[in-house]
Simulated scan of single mutants.
Amino acid sequence: MSSPKRRIETDVMKLLMSDYEVTLVKGSMQEFYVRFKGPQETPFQDGTWSVHVELPDQYPYKSPSIGFRNRIFHPNIDELSGSVCLDVINQSWSPMFDMINIFEVFLPQLLRYPNPTDPLNGDAAALLLREPKAYENMVKDYVAKYASKGVTEDGDEDSSGDEEMSSVGSYESDDEPAGQMEV
């Protein structure tokens, strides 16, 4: 077994053995969904998102692709595709990082400290800069509508395509994953 394959298995096993709910797509360790809860003491704290992850064959030397499947209102996350703009991974990805880092450090930091000066969602960035309280209220509205307990627990992600995603507020209609951005 090659080193990247072994590393993929090691990292995915760490995730599977963690407190995160991980659903493999078609049994593959290179494509899966992770249920991700918003960090405490942020407007995202009551939300749960399904995050789609694809690991390239060259992982960990090449960064994974990740994308939020249910809507989230954030300056650095594209509302429609779920793509994430996360410079710390995108431009400085290192084989020293693993999947646990993404869900325990990078994504919580991104939600806790948005960067409105480099937005994927210009509306969220503008609102955060002009009216921080209105931004916080909009985030909470999105959490209630797209990432609340009742919305996200109606269906579980599995390998059957996108139909299971409709119960978590998905807005994808084809069988392709949301437009993911390498991070």
Rank of each mutant, 00 (worst) to 15 (best):
G179L: 09
K5G: 09
F32W: 03
V139E: 10
Y135N: 10
S94W: 00
N121F: 02
E157M: 10
N101K: 12
E172K: 14
S160A: 09
S2G: 04
V12I: 04
Y113A: 08
W93R: 09
V25K: 08
K149C: 11
S94T: 09
E164M: 09
E31A: 09
V84K: 07
M165H: 10
K14H: 13
E31D: 04
H52Q: 02
S94N: 02
M99D: 05
E21C: 00
Y61E: 15
F32C: 05
N115S: 05
D46I: 06
G150V: 04
V12L: 11
V88M: 11
I8M: 05
S173K: 14
F103E: 10
W49Q: 01
D162C: 14
S81H: 08
S167M: 13
N76S: 13
S81F: 04
P177H: 10
L129W: 06
A178G: 15
N137L: 14
Y20L: 10
N101D: 14
G169A: 01
L110Y: 00
R112M: 14
P75I: 03
D98P: 04
S3Y: 03
V22Y: 01
D162W: 11
D46K: 04
S81Y: 01
Q58R: 12
S173L: 14
L107F: 02
K149W: 11
K37I: 09
V22C: 06
N76Y: 00
E54T: 14
A144L: 09
Q40T: 06
Q40S: 13
L129A: 12
D175E: 15
T152R: 03
S94H: 00
L86I: 14
E79D: 12
T23L: 03
E21T: 10
L128I: 01
L16M: 13
N70P: 08
